[in-house]
Measured scan of single mutants.
Amino acid sequence: SKNWSEDDLQLLIKAVNLFPAGTNSRWEVIANYMNIHSSSGVKRTAKDVIGKA
C-alpha cells in the first residue's frame, strides 16, 4: 500500500469530518477531496481511503 504522510492522515481526518456518514458516494468524495488538497501528489482511491479510515 502507498505510504501515508502525517499531512495526508490529518487531511483524511478533516475530510471524514467534512463528509459525514450518509454523504452520497462518501468514500469517493473523500478520495477526490484528498487528491485535490494533498501536498504528497499521491492519488488515492476510495479503497485506499476506506483501508486507512
Rank of each mutant, 00 (worst) to 15 (best):
A21I: 09
F19E: 00
S25K: 13
A15I: 00
E28I: 05
D48A: 07
W4D: 02
A21F: 11
N32G: 08
G51P: 08
L9D: 15
I13V: 13
N24M: 12
K14M: 08
G41Q: 11
I36Q: 15
K14L: 06
D7R: 14
V49M: 08
D7K: 12
T45S: 10
V49P: 00
Y33D: 00
D8G: 00
E28M: 05
F19Y: 09
P20H: 07
S5K: 11
D48S: 08
R26N: 02
D48C: 05
T23C: 06
K47H: 09
N32H: 15
M34K: 00
N32V: 03
A15Q: 00
L9T: 13
F19S: 03
E28T: 06
K52C: 13
I30G: 01
A21K: 13
N32Y: 04
V49R: 01
L18F: 08
L18P: 02
L11V: 05
L18Q: 05
T23P: 04
R26V: 00
M34S: 01
W4H: 01
Y33Q: 02
D7P: 12
V42F: 09
T23G: 07
I30K: 01
P20N: 06
G22I: 08
S5D: 03
V16W: 07
N35R: 03
W4V: 01
A15F: 01
V16K: 15
I30Y: 01
R44S: 05
G41W: 03
S38M: 02
I13R: 15
P20K: 10
I36D: 14
N32I: 03
N17D: 15
E6Y: 08
Q10F: 05
K43I: 09
D48Q: 10
L9E: 14
V42A: 03
A46H: 06
Y33C: 00
Q10H: 07
N3E: 04
E6W: 15
D8I: 04
A31H: 01
K14Q: 06
S39T: 15
A15K: 00
E28R: 10
A31T: 14
E28C: 04
I50D: 08
A53C: 08
I36F: 10
D8E: 11
K47C: 08
K14A: 13
A46K: 11
L18K: 07
S40D: 07
I36H: 10
N17H: 09
S25L: 07
N35M: 04
Q10W: 02
N3A: 05
W4G: 01
I36G: 13
K52L: 05
A21G: 10
D7M: 14
N24W: 07
L11C: 05
D7N: 10
N17Y: 08
R26T: 04
E6K: 03
V29K: 10
L11D: 02
Q10E: 12
G22M: 05
N24R: 12
L12I: 05
W4T: 03
K52Y: 08
S25D: 14
N35D: 03
L9F: 15
K47D: 14
N3Q: 08
S25Q: 07
E28F: 05
K14W: 03
G22A: 12
G41E: 09
N24A: 15
N3M: 15
I36C: 14
K43H: 09
K14S: 08
L11M: 07
K43F: 09
M34P: 04
K43S: 09
N24D: 14
I30F: 03
L12H: 04
F19V: 10
S25G: 11
A53L: 03
I36T: 13
